[in-house]
């Protein structure tokens, strides 16, 4: 007689719990094609940028772990993601030393100050980028030509600037992004070029198609809340559509708005940051629509050509409040809870 073995477990009957490390690793996988396209598109300068920011972020994370006497959190891949995302939002000719400073600031100020992963109020990569925008406004608005024939053998002149010195000018390589071309010269870029990414821009923001594909992978693996990118894109599309209907001559088409600049990258990989976004169903939509709306408002009426970064940071700041007002009401507890 063989004993009958029955495993008894209380619900929930999960096959396997998904760990933070697993999710983060999959996000890295999803980012790799975007990075690969960036390197192909902008050459070794983009590669150096990706390596530098990742090293700066991971290094800072480790040093802060050591200083605070906590176990290492490097292996959870979140610092790697911050590094990759930061590089993807920077212009290809951005000097490496500035990129490293941004990475350090992003992790130290954007993450460690709040208590590490899970406590950060804002997306750390965007904190780093916002710092760079404030500190080095010249370098961060210098855009270079994509697909330059010498891009695999030669660094852009400003990439290897000696730390703390002014980067060399990149006069021969400069180019306008679709957004700056629209804002300052009134030139429209065809939507197809924007979709495939054959334009100038930040390292990883150019190809909407590729970013969407990588986002779909994460959605398919159920590691990303698809409502957030959907809400961000529809928020931007609706706002831009209203403006376009009011005056088609003054404003670009909503397709241009959705496909250009960092909106796609921001919507898929940054607004969907699990820590800094709300968790309630209606809250997620409110959050996404707000980011899309703010992006368009900043682009159309602000001084800067691009507004995704500030829009997401503002959305992050609003998300505790959004969560509070969209809290589901426990059954039978009256109409509305006081704020």
């Amino acid at each position: 007689m063989s004993a009958l073995h029955i495993k008894l477990k209380t619900s929930p009957h999960l096959i396997q719990a998904v760990s933070v490390e697993q999710i983060m690793r999959n996000v890295v996988y999803a980012l790799l094609p975007v990075c690969a396209f960036a390197v192909w598109h902008f050459g070794i300068s983009a590669l150096a940028l990706l390596v530098t920011t990742t090293a700066a972020c991971v290094g800072t994370e480790r040093v802060i772990n050591l200083l605070s006497g906590k176990p290492s959190t490097v292996t959870d891949f979140s610092a790697v993601i911050t590094g990759l995302l930061l590089a993807l939002t920077l212009p290809p000719a951005f000097p490496l030393w500035m990129a490293a400073v941004s990475g350090i600031i992003g992790i130290a100020l954007g993450k460690a100050m709040f208590g590490g992963l899970g406590y950060n109020l804002f997306n750390p990569a965007l904190i780093g980028r916002a710092f760079a925008q404030g500190a080095f406004p010249g370098a961060i608005s210098t855009w270079t030509l994509p697909g330059h024939p010498d891009r695999f053998v030669e660094f852009l002149p400003s990439t290897l600037a000696i730390p703390f010195t002014r980067p060399e000018s990149v006069d021969g390589w400069t180019s306008a992004t679709p957004l700056t071309a629209w804002k300052f010269q009134g030139v429209d870029t065809p939507s197809m070029e924007l979709f495939t990414g054959m334009v100038a821009g930040s390292v990883g923001e150019t190809s909407a198609l590729l970013i969407l594909g990588c986002g779909l992978y994460l959605v398919a693996r159920r590691m990303m809340n698809w409502h957030i990118p959907a809400a961000v894109l529809s928020g931007a599309f609706i706002t831009a559509g209203v403006c376009y209907l009011i005056d088609p001559n003054a404003y670009p088409t909503p397709w241009f708005v959705v496909l250009s600049g960092g909106l796609m990258l921001g919507a898929v990989f940054m607004a969907s940051d699990m820590v800094a976004s709300p968790v309630t169903r209606s809250g997620v939509w409110l959050y996404g629509l707000l980011i899309g709306f703010l992006t368009v408002i900043i682009r159309f009426f602000g001084g800067l050509p691009e507004g995704v970064m500030y829009a997401i940071l503002l959305g992050n700041a609003a998300s505790p409040l959004i969560e509070r007002i969209t809290q589901p009401r426990p059954y039978g507890t009256g109409r509305r809870r006081p704020l």
């Binding site: 500035m98 100020l109 404030g134 500190a135 080095f136 703390f164 010195t165």
Partner: peptide, 20 residues
Amino acid sequence: IFGQSFEPWIIMLLPPGGFF
């Protein structure tokens, strides 16, 4: 102090720099 080639960190002159 740092000579001509120094790239200034503009943000330090702006209000956020004060907080940092």
